[in-house]
Design a protein around this nucleic acid. Structure first.
Lengths: 207, 207
DNA sequence: AAGGGTCTTTACCAGTTGGTAGAGAGACGG
DNA sequence: CCGTCTCTCTACCAACTGGTAAAGACCCTT
């Protein structure tokens, strides 16, 4: 009301993005049910109805937030998949890239955690993003196996194991914070190393 | 109303315990905010006010549930700590015992997950249970280290790593379920093995 | 200057939330 | 038979929930 007198063209995208940012943080920390649109709006200095104008409903807001995060993630993965790395190097690059995103945007981990719970309103939405990504990865891996560039293994189980490791990092970060320990990079890096070791011993033919 | 005409002495503990069981399940799956006392009561065929009679408030109910679970866990750990196992064997027995409790009462894992989130209403309560337990374990481990029966390592970091592994199992089980995979023992057993390997390589002097 | 589009607001609503007050039912000891 | 204790109920409430309707403010185009 005070400073928003500025030009509308800037404010247009601004407000919407700000709402999304605040929602991401709140959903990730307080949870979906624990987030009220009034509180969210109050925190931004706007009215709840402004939120409902940009995102039709609370559920729509959650979906938008999930979509954006999933977009960030798939975008990062696409970069790697269209890169020069091949065979095992590509797997390693993929893991490192995903962990980098997670580390750079820690709020995303909170949302991932919230939305991973089955029965969560966002679980279904997340699934629609994850499933094609997982299927694609699975096809690629199985192709590599068939071509003899990777050792034979249960690709699906491997992928799920990798996925749950990432979600596990989300949980771990918060457990650490709850234990009063300032979240550092160390445990995350350790998890990444463990995951890479696991994948290497399962897939790398040079092993 | 129909069958509860039976003697009151039985009903007394019965109702309270049933409320606690249902609350444990609901808090663990739908979350604290996602659980309404009305729904909870309806599921039990009683009125919400009956719940509020036995547990003063919703928060009180959560605390009671957390207390009971923490009691189960500390009780199990006490059994091991007063048992015959020594040195490394005791560590292994402890891990196996905790995992056994988690496997036998999977609903507890859901609650643990919900309540591990910092900012969750139950986080504080959980902490009051966990902190003395952790402190006690730490003192013991450091004593063993000083006596040369275990290799020197950062005891606190080790404990937190172990703790977050258990919480990770809670998350993983739900991720698997969300992925459409019937939760089996396998990943849990694998996590236990990984944890034991990690602890052994950190602590066991015979290694 | 006027009309239309975009955005944010005020006003309002029905349903649900956790919680309080108090009555009624049954068991038990006197 | 009566009072008391334990338990569960009905009745009610203020606060808050997500959501609707519509008016006002601002910009751009004509």
């Amino acid at each position: 009301m005070q400073e928003r007198v500025q030009g509308r063209i800037q404010a247009r995208s601004d407000t919407k993005a700000q709402i999304q940012d605040a929602a991401l943080a709140s959903f990730g920390t307080a949870g979906y049910d624990g987030t009220s649109l009034d509180d969210l709006a109050r925190g931004l200095g706007i009215r709840k109805q402004t939120i409902l104008y940009h995102f039709v409903s609370k559920r729509g807001l959650l979906n938008a937030v999930v979509d954006r995060c999933a977009g960030d993630l798939t975008g990062a993965m696409d970069e790697v998949l269209s890169g020069a790395d091949r065979d095992w190097d590509r797997v390693e690059a993929l893991v490192r890239r995903v962990f980098r995103v997670a580390l750079e945007q820690p709020v995303m981990l909170g949302l991932l955690r919230e939305v991973s719970r089955p029965g969560s309103p966002g679980a279904q939405r997340l699934r629609t993003h994850m499933e094609p990504m997982m299927a694609r990865a699975r096809v690629w891996i199985e192709g590599e196996m068939a071509a003899g560039r990777m050792r034979r293994a249960d690709a699906q189980l491997l992928l799920i194991s990798a996925y749950s490791t990432v979600v596990g990092v989300a949980t771990e970060t918060e457990v650490l914070r709850a234990a009063g320990i300032e979240p550092t990079l160390r445990p995350v890096v350790q998890r990444r190393r463990e995951l890479l070791n696991f994948l290497r011993s399962s897939l790398d033919p040079r092993d």
